[in-house]
Write a protein that binds this DNA or RNA. Structure first.
Length: 219
DNA sequence: ATCCCGAGGG
DNA sequence: CCCTCTGGAT
């Protein structure tokens, strides 16, 4: 199947079944989203949502977080992955927000990436979710699912390469949605370890499924 | 044992 | 490019 047709099928299916996909991280303003996304590295959204209410209540804006001790922030996030690093990142992020951006969440990749704990992926999530900009954040799900569905070439071995491959073929108005579609598909159907191919509506053009079937020995 | 919406540093 | 960080669920 041609690459163009793969993208058409992908967009068609999810437009029909998930017309308005959203992040599963709980938040009520851009600052809370930024905190939640920084915490979400190598951790499930479900876990972030379990600890975020107390965290947001104690640190509702950059001002309180910027003057907090790393130890206290750590105490709120100790159950997520890499709590030491993330506690330092959160305090540093809040201080940088106040010192350089007047406490407002910046709206460019370059400015967002100057914030401690914010890399290309997190920056693009903020731009996509907060500002609805056509940017593709490539996380572990987007990377894996894109390759399995043949939306990214085998030569795209880095997140940036996958990002460019997706951006080259997805119409701008679908980019923010496509980001969520790829994540939802990766989280609930196209699982990393044991993907639920039986429940996948896209398996007829999935390279992973094709290879998987081909490797089964008929007895 | 493997994975979860990675980032920073060497 | 590599490595480290490093908790909880399955």
């Amino acid at each position: 199947m041609l690459k163009k047709e793969r993208f058409r099928r992908f967009i068609e299916y999810f437009t029909q079944h998930y017309p308005e996909p959203q992040t599963e991280l709980n938040f009520s303003n851009p600052f809370e989203l930024l905190v939640a996304v920084i915490l979400s590295a190598q951790c499930t959204d479900k876990r972030i949502n379990q600890i975020s209410p107390a965290l947001f209540a104690r640190f509702p804006e950059p001002e309180s977080l910027a003057v907090a001790s790393v130890d206290e922030v750590f105490s709120y996030i100790r159950s997520v992955s890499y709590p030491n690093n993330k506690a330092k990142h959160l305090v540093g992020m809040a201080r940088t927000l106040l010192e350089r951006f007047g406490g407002e969440i910046p709206a460019t990749v370059e400015e967002l990436q100057t914030l401690p704990g914010v890399g290309r992926k997190t920056a693009h999530v903020i731009l996509s979710v907060v500002y609805n900009e056509p940017t593709m954040a490539v996380d572990t799900h987007v990377f894996r699912v894109s390759h399995r569905l043949g939306l990214a070439p085998l030569t795209a071995t880095t997140p940036l390469a996958v990002e460019k491959a997706l951006m080259a073929h997805i119409p701008k108005q679908y980019v923010p949605k496509a980001h969520h579609w790829l994540i939802l598909h990766g989280r609930y159907v196209c699982l990393a370890r044991s993907p639920k191919c039986d429940a996948c509506a896209l398996r007829d053009f999935c390279k992973y499924y094709e290879k998987r079937m081909g490797s089964i020995v008929v007895q």
